[in-house]
Amino acid sequence: MISPDQYLHNILIREAIPVGLYTPLNVCKTTLVPILQNWAGEYLAAITPSGSFAKGTANRSGTDIDIFVSLRPETRETLKEVYDKLHDHLKGNGFTPRRQNVSLGIKVNGFDVDVVPAKRQDSYSQDHSLYRSKADTWTKTNVARHIDIVANCGRRDEIRILKLWRNQKGLDFPSFYLELSVIEALRNTYSIGRSGNVVTCLTYLRDRFPLARVVDPANTNNILSDELTAMQKAMIASAAKNALSAASWDRVVK
């Protein structure tokens, strides 16, 4: 019999992302960067990873690759036009883009990739405006700050375990919302072992999460907790309750 901490450690080892030239991120960037450069032209500011790969919270299984396309403030098109034109450009290059809330989802060399187009608000900060297709509006955010908060939170192992749990239980739980929830659950919690920390997170999701108000730290007007309905939050809380009553850790996450 192995300890709960060792069990979770073994899962993290198994789910570690390969390093080197042929990582999924590098393979996808090699294909996508020329296409995105051609689309953006002179208005391109940068093409960078922006999700779990950049934050260090990616797992080998079930993780989308997020590519953030930053356009210069002088870009003439509206945010909706930027989003629609990128959709058409990807389609014209042989992809089948899926319209998501702020991104376009495509398959690249067998990997799921979310491409997020955004326009810098000025030349001096990393604040960006991006289009929210579900509400047909725009929002301000700062992906660089998101990456910094999560990458340096000291809770990346617990986040990776909770992401695996989310995926394996089929829960609708946006990644950044999940990451901030884990950070909040473990705030002022000192090391009680990896398994103890995961239990603390599940307890938070069961008891406090459904009514917790979670805001984008880069824009307090962007309420991340509004991304899920009360029913979706209740499903997460119920799954956490079931996990806490599980007879063994392999019933929680595999």
Rank of each mutant, 00 (worst) to 15 (best):
Y7G: 00
M235F: 04
I67G: 13
T30A: 15
R213G: 08
N222R: 11
L186I: 00
N242C: 08
L211K: 13
K80R: 14
K29H: 12
T203L: 10
Q121K: 13
C153I: 04
L130N: 00
I161G: 02
G170S: 11
T189H: 12
N152D: 06
P117M: 14
V198S: 05
T229H: 01
H89R: 02
G51V: 03
E77H: 05
M231L: 09
G56N: 04
P24N: 08
Q126R: 07
T203H: 08
S103T: 15
I65P: 04
Q168A: 12
Q121A: 10
R155G: 04
K241V: 11
Y124R: 11
P217K: 13
G62S: 08
A135K: 15
V116S: 10
P4Y: 01
A239L: 09
I236T: 01
K163W: 06
D136T: 06
I2Q: 03
S50G: 15
E227P: 00
V253C: 10
V252K: 09
T220A: 15
F68K: 06
S3R: 03
D64L: 12
T189E: 01
A144S: 12
W165I: 02
L104V: 09
L244T: 11
W165F: 15
V116C: 14
V182Y: 04
D64M: 08
S175P: 05
I223F: 00
M235D: 12
